[in-house]
Design a protein around this nucleic acid. Sequence first.
DNA 1: CTGAAAGCGCTTACAG
DNA 2: CTGAAAGCGCTTACAG
Lengths: 365, 365
Amino acid sequence: MAEPKKAKGTLTIYDVANRAGVSIASVSRVLNGQGSPRAETRDRVMRAVRELSFVRDGAARALSNGLKEVVGVVFRRGGEELFEGEDESFLFIDVINRGIEVGAQRRGFDLLISSVGFNDDNVAARIAALAGKADGLILHDRMLSTVGIARLADMVPVVTLAGSPTPASLNVRCDNGSGIRALVRHLVLDHGYRSLGYVSGRADSPDNRTRSRAFENEAAAVGATIDTGPAWQGNYSAAGGANVIETLLDSRKKLPRAILCANDQTALGVIHALAQRGIKVPQDVAITGFDDVPVARHLHPPLTTIRQPMKELGAKAFDVLYSRISAGGGKADTVLPVELIVRESCGCPPGSSPPQNPSPAGAGT
Amino acid sequence: MAEPKKAKGTLTIYDVANRAGVSIASVSRVLNGQGSPRAETRDRVMRAVRELSFVRDGAARALSNGLKEVVGVVFRRGGEELFEGEDESFLFIDVINRGIEVGAQRRGFDLLISSVGFNDDNVAARIAALAGKADGLILHDRMLSTVGIARLADMVPVVTLAGSPTPASLNVRCDNGSGIRALVRHLVLDHGYRSLGYVSGRADSPDNRTRSRAFENEAAAVGATIDTGPAWQGNYSAAGGANVIETLLDSRKKLPRAILCANDQTALGVIHALAQRGIKVPQDVAITGFDDVPVARHLHPPLTTIRQPMKELGAKAFDVLYSRISAGGGKADTVLPVELIVRESCGCPPGSSPPQNPSPAGAGT
DNA sequence: CTGAAAGCGCTTACAG
DNA sequence: CTGAAAGCGCTTACAG
């Protein structure tokens, strides 16, 4: 009584066949564009389909075909606080998903999405259930431990985003290292700044670790001095960035000539804190971000930053997953190029042209 | 060769049954928590499941159960321009989807999403295919004509968002009228402003029509004079709002004492344009928005506006759809209350308390 | 070109 | 408590 087994008079291919006076095989063929049905057969089927408003059941098709045409997407949802600071990452996830969708639509796939909260219990079970409803899975961020991913990849093809490949799963990411290197080179080689600082992101973020390491290596390579230490620890938020600057200034530290920020949000906070203390950007200190969020171009001064091809990232993730689903192949680790966006916060004049130093950000691929 | 029918050694319930030394019926029962299997049976099954990393195929379950536990969500995607002005609506859609997901997760459903572009061809076919993969559909905005919706609702339960119910489909929306009425009353009754203007949204938007009509009616009801006409036509964007003000001012029109804006974006543009001309908000002209977007509280002055329960809207849409799916019922038209958010752009002092006039916005429910 | 029939991987009465 | 078997709605060799 509470849960009727069938919605009601579920329409099947038999109903269509009856009405059209043909066999269900013919109906199926017409609907799939298989074989070469007689024009009359085709017309009768199409008319019956239209008159009955018939749609094939996806579950039955999937069972028969061994293909659901569904890609599962899992990501971590923030706390209940949607808007305070959380909204950027929120947007990012959705832009990537949009990209996945673009790729998926080319193949007739749809996105089955499921977010998991930080304190959800049976996460593994939930993801497993999702796996059962999809042909493959795309995992945002680090949702699962490496063994968790491996176990999952045992059941179904898996692509991770911004992680690293495992023996069983594929990975797609942006070239963080190149982005940071392009920034360092621009600041040091094009502008001649000799001292650099890096306001980091969350310590547990793989992206942040990569960026941080690239910063140190490249600064050394081009002979710039760097400021480091716990005082430079941010957390990807504007508040975190502002806090770093205030702490530094309160302890009467001399700021480096240029400061790279782990992301745009951080840069936003840093610029704000600097303005409060009457320090001019870029005249006194040059600032750069990472991400190129929508507001980056509207800051004062407009932010020099690194653009990640978010949408392409998603589309690529789907493509890689698809090739594994359909052919069992798929590149283990795909790295997408990023792009240096030169605006004014680095000290360049308004409307300036691309940077001068060679091979900026692994671009051109 | 190109498209193997089965991924490969697809694991089935038979494999689990073999390994556990029981029948497939027992495996199924254990997995579903049906009946009361002996402890030993249950253990053997669970062990086999774990050892094999088995997950049940969702398609087969769906076919057998008549329930996919999937809700289809369709929305219109903007052009390729993701970021310039488009990003707000973008965010809105995703917040609503997040709400749908919350509702869905309570019932073990996942979201199958599919966006359609403005110039996609076979939209109807795409949505129909989605319908075949889901137990029901939620349609954002006005994706389809009324007859299109009716046809779709013929195939599968349908809930529309911010539209209106049809004989075959259900609808969920926010109480736009109450929001505008609360704003008008606050401006006229609490602040004593006698002349009002309304910078409208896109002319073809149902929401905008409702808001516009409510504005005119309520202004008349409380005895305020209103400015209207084509010069007041905005388009939901900041640029549109700024443009209205500039046009008005250029034609040397005297502005009303208070201006309601169709949404927050518009208000943002209006406030900006006013500032450019040296007109003070709220001293010279009071301004209000609609939506309560994240930045609304950070504007100068902080924006008085109407908050729509976006997430609840999504969750409610799912609930309504679910009740139709499971029981065939479901309320035809659900209206969610909105909330008046009083900040300073209306002329209230910082940190002011709720408005004084009775029954602000259908709140309290 | 078309139809009868097997099979996809589950769930669930029905017997035992 | 447990197993053999039917059935969910499709697709697709296999005959004709």
